[in-house]
Simulated assay, not measured.
Amino acid sequence: MLQKYTYLKVGHILPYSMSGSNTTDFTNPSTFILLGIPGLERAHVWISIPFCAMYAIALLGNFTILFIVKMEPSLHGPMYYFLCMLAINDLVLSTSILPKMLSIFWFNSREIYFSACLTQMYFIHCFSVMESGIFVAMAFDRYVAICDPLRHSTILTNPVVAKIGLAVVLRGSMLSLPCPLLARQWPYCRTNIIPHSYCEHIAVVKLACADIRVSSYYSLSVAFLVTALDVFFITMSYIQILRAIFSLPTKDSQLKTFGTCGSHLCAILAFYIPDLFSSLTHRFGHNVPLHFQILSANVYLLVPPLLHPIIYGVRTKEIQDRLLQLFTHKGT
């Protein structure tokens, strides 16, 4: 069924000329076709229900975090500035894939312009790298707050926080830029059918009739180096944090201090575990069904934006108190 669809759509969407040659050659096709989740087409409407609910909760939760931090002067500090960066990042990341994905599921609107596909690819890579960098910044904040609390306000001043945020943004932007630039230069002469629900980098460049090892190696190197370095810095920060915590005199003080890191640790796990699972499935799961690989890739991008505001809302007392004030004030 997939082969039949591919044959019909390629001939319709991407006409080509064959003047005295049996080869097809075109560069930068005007449109690609996203299949959604191949093999589960009949279930697209049902799959869209939890995805839409996740997106709605992510929007509500992250906008709530931004509103509370903006309205509460006592939350105007480094930890909450980084939390706002995380909320904005999650909003952009989820919005870069969900609207188009839902249009595929609901309206069978599978076409996406080539430039729009590359833009989506860039946003996904850029904001994924930025999210990892934000977690490093948050780990540094927790390290200073626990290991050197008296100097926390002098080390993490507003200008320093702004510079850290700028560095996170520039790193994500620069490291992700070669992916769409390389993808744009390849000739696409096989098909314009992408067996995915969004313009995932490898899924797109695999359609090129050229040696794509540069694209493949670059994306793999960036993913590995960014994740490895960021996890290393986060781990080193928490080793120092744990040493400082265990040196505290009482168990109550140890638990109370460690509790200030609980939200950050849960958010890290919510981001890196789906990332690791999706990466392993794509790289080594050759016997894993394609629809399961694509579902895992979607979960990796959708679950963290859903969970982060819930985690911080549940585990951060200052945010809980502000939310309670808002609701009780409205109730009166």
Rank of each mutant, 00 (worst) to 15 (best):
L229M: 10
V314P: 01
E318P: 06
I134D: 04
I310Y: 00
Q325P: 02
S153P: 03
L35E: 15
T31H: 12
T119I: 03
I47N: 04
L301W: 00
V226H: 11
E200T: 01
T154M: 08
S74T: 15
L182D: 09
T332P: 13
D90H: 10
L35Y: 15
L269G: 01
P274A: 01
T154V: 08
H308S: 00
T157Y: 11
L118D: 05
I294N: 08
I88S: 03
C261R: 06
S176L: 10
F292A: 05
V204M: 14
I193E: 09
R184S: 09
I146N: 06
F67N: 07
L166F: 14
F105N: 05
Q3E: 13
K206S: 10
F123E: 05
L177W: 14
F32S: 01
V161C: 12
V92R: 07
L83A: 06
P187C: 01
G259E: 08
L170Y: 06
I193A: 11
Y198L: 04
T260F: 07
R315P: 02
H291K: 04
I245F: 08
V160R: 15
L98Q: 01
H201V: 02
I104Y: 02
F63K: 00
L166H: 13
I33D: 13
P149L: 12
L276E: 03
C147W: 11
I49H: 13
A137D: 11
E200Q: 14
N28G: 07
C126A: 15
G39M: 03
V303S: 07
F327K: 00
Q240T: 09
S96K: 01
A167I: 08
L265W: 14
H201C: 03
L242C: 10
V144S: 03
G133P: 02
A162T: 15
D141N: 15
Q120I: 00
D90S: 15
P149R: 14
A53C: 12
L156M: 15
M71Q: 10
G61P: 06
